[in-house]
Design a protein around this nucleic acid. Sequence first.
DNA 1: GGACAATGTCATGCT
DNA 2: CTAGCATGACATTGT
Length: 642
Amino acid sequence: MQIAKKYLTEGLIQLTILLSLVGVRVDIDSYLTGYYPPLAEINLGPSSAYTQTPFHVLRETLDGYGVHPKCPELDYFFASRRLLDEVRTLGSPRFHTQLNAWLVHQVSSAGPSTTSTTSSDHDTSAGPESTEDEAGGAGEHLPVRGQEVHRQPNSELGQGPCGAGAFLSEEEAQIKEEEEAVPLAQLAHSSTLEQESLLEGIGTLSEPVLHHVAPATDIDWNNLLSVPDLDDLDSLVTGRLSELDSDINGAISQDVSLHDAMVTGGGAFGPASGTAASGTVGQQRRTLLRLESTNSSLSDHLPGMAVGLAALPFASVCNLTGNMTSQSGLDGCLDEAVFDQINQLGLESLDAIDDHLNYLDCLDSQAFEDLDSDSGLSLESSYGCPVSPGSSEMSSSSSSYYEEEGGATGYSSEVDSKPPKSIIDHSTTWQPVDLSESVWHDHSYTSPPVLSKPFLRLPCKTEEPEEDGGAQLDDRELSRDEMRARAMCIPFSVLQIVNMPVEEFMEVLDSHSFSPEQVTLLRDIRRRGKNKLAAQNCRKRKLDAITGLQEEVERLHAQRERLLREKRLTAKTMGAVAHQFKQLSRDVLSRLRDASGRPLNPDRFTLQCGANGRVVVQPVRQPSVSTSAGKKTDKRKKEKKQ
DNA sequence: GGACAATGTCATGCT
DNA sequence: CTAGCATGACATTGT
């Protein structure tokens, strides 16, 4: 039922549109109350076809009283005003906002050029003349404008941004166009419709054909934006843009950064741009639309992110896709005010960009190497040092153990305890990972020189004594376990023994046919190495805890001092208030008289304030009486106890 | 040579 | 049950 009502409502809307074209004005708001929210609200978002009919509403809401409802120039004028407001007030410069900014810019910056080229037509029609016409009526440029309109019947930009003063010839021409091909041309000036269409375009950016929305230089915007049913927009755009493929390649030609666009934006559109101005306006149109291709190109890579990126601030999107496609479309398409507002949008957009970039990185990493997923992480994986050349005697798997350079730096029990899935894959799965980020504390220990030295090959001293002096130095710096390992002809360094995964260690013990003494030594070396690192971590944690407690003590000391100061201040204030109260009481009591007309003695009476706000004069209790009574009660208590 | 800090090692409990 | 971790206690080493 609701759906049927909606269709009926939409049919009413279409009928209203047609009637408005004929000249009959129908206010459908009264018919639609209760089903749709107020039109002004709906107009803010691309929700339904109902947003296609804000003609007179816009006029009335934008001070358009008394104007003929079918004046397309006024439609464009109001739309431009609203677009400008949107550009300056919207929190997030979505794509359509950027387009609106471009249209507004056409109005404000174009010079009085009247050249016959298409681009110059856009400039001319949108130039300051419009404001002049708006201010003082118009008539001088009427013939020229009419010719222009007839020369460029399909140029929405040429006919749209005319001044508020209605040009009769242009209006007639536009009415012709509306009757012929574009019955809803007025809707082209509705930012709501633009939002809808553009959002639809953005939502389908993954479709290759919509890449060509942007570079269309001579696209018929009236036809494009006047589609009665928005569901047909895609099909129309597709059909339209299939004719414009030739212009696309030419349009995507420049690579200008956003910063360049911002810097040169004013100059490119300024009247002093000279010859470049006439030739660049059409290109500006392309470059503006090229931004759509920018988004779409990104959506090619990330189809699922198309909508999300569309919601990003425009500048951020440009930065995001800066390496992918050109950005020269910003050159002159947006004024600096728009950029300022875009830049003032805060860091949320940047965070969103970072998220997307991280997502891209994740995609890349997952696409090119899926290595960390099954990696058996180890301590040495943080450093990525090349494996020791002495692995000739080692197993192939042992060659993956990197020599540690930073001692216990980055030591993480959580990561280290993870065994690999396959021993054979260790050489590839042990990727450099900063393990220091995996633990909450900073294990920034410096390893002893022994551990820092690569112990690649540990020949038995009896078999292959070292010949160079470096070996003697090594002997002096070797730890006891290193010496023992050398003495026992164990072909692994202490670090390798300690840091290899358990499975790897077991494999080594099994495959090398070690003697029981060697196996015991290997296990002891591994245990001691593990415990050494654990002790280092433990001491580090202890020091951190001590430091934290010291800071806590200092903080509590400061808090105590502050509270004591507040206490002293409060006591001082209370004393002052009590003194004032006492003075006031004496003053009041001195003015009071008893029943016999004698003044009250302030020492014998006091003022008591009741809960109800009443002040009562009460005699002061004699301390002697109360003291004696207290003593009596105390004596009675003592007697009872005895 | 003793004090002290840093580090290594062992024993033990826990996961 | 075993490997590994955490930690107290003791030993070692260097200053």
